[in-house]
């Protein structure tokens, strides 16, 4: 059995004889443990709860909190709340998609970046807001985002040269 499957098994063991009402807590536990919800984990959950995997996928995609790809080394979120939208977060997102070559919910192939949109971060005074690895960046602009992205890349290049 693969490492991740063992971890999922251990999580499921905490929910014996559970019904569908345990689904979301289980998915949250798995995401906490693995960082995302792999296909195999959803199959395991389905077998445990006697739920079709399509149902679980349906529930998981309904909520914004669940991911189906591992996070990148740098996880970027862009706020799409009203204030941020008015302040141009739409353009910000377009730019991020173009620069990073990934869509929201995806992780770049080199695993360097992942991108996500959120509804509101509650920091409307700083709009438009983005976070990089949970660090807030106020009054973001496409240029600022590009700069941040370049910094991340440089950091990696640096590391590689050092090692």
């Amino acid at each position: 059995m693969k490492e991740s499957a063992k971890k999922v098994k251990a999580i499921l063991a905490k929910y014996p004889d559970s019904g569908r009402d345990a689904l979301i807590p289980i998915l949250q536990d798995i995401q906490d443990e693995l960082g995302y919800l792999p296909t195999s984990a959803i199959m395991q959950v389905g077998a445990h709860l006697a739920l079709p995997s399509s149902k679980i996928y349906g529930v998981a995609t309904f909520y914004n909190q669940f991911r189906f790809q591992p996070k990148g080394r740098n996880h970027i979120t862009i706020c799409r709340g009203t204030a941020c939208h008015v302040k141009g977060s739409g353009k910000l997102l377009e730019n991020a998609v173009a620069t990073l070559k990934i869509k929201p919910g995806q992780t770049s192939r080199d695993k360097l970046f992942s991108l996500e949109t959120v509804a509101c971060m509650g920091a409307c005074g700083l709009a438009p807001v983005i976070t990089v690895n949970d660090e807030f960046n106020a009054k973001a602009s496409p240029a600022k985002l590009n700069r941040l992205a370049r910094c991340c890349k440089d950091e990696i290049t640096q590391e590689r040269e050092n090692s």
Binding site: T39, I42, S53, S54, I56, Y57, G58, T61, F62
Partner: peptide
């Protein structure tokens, strides 16, 4: 199949 995603993005889909 089941409903996946939400709002305007809702679609009928298999798992994954």
């Amino acid at each position: 199949v089941d409903f996946a995603s939400r709002g305007a993005e809702t679609k009928v889909a298999t798992s994954f």
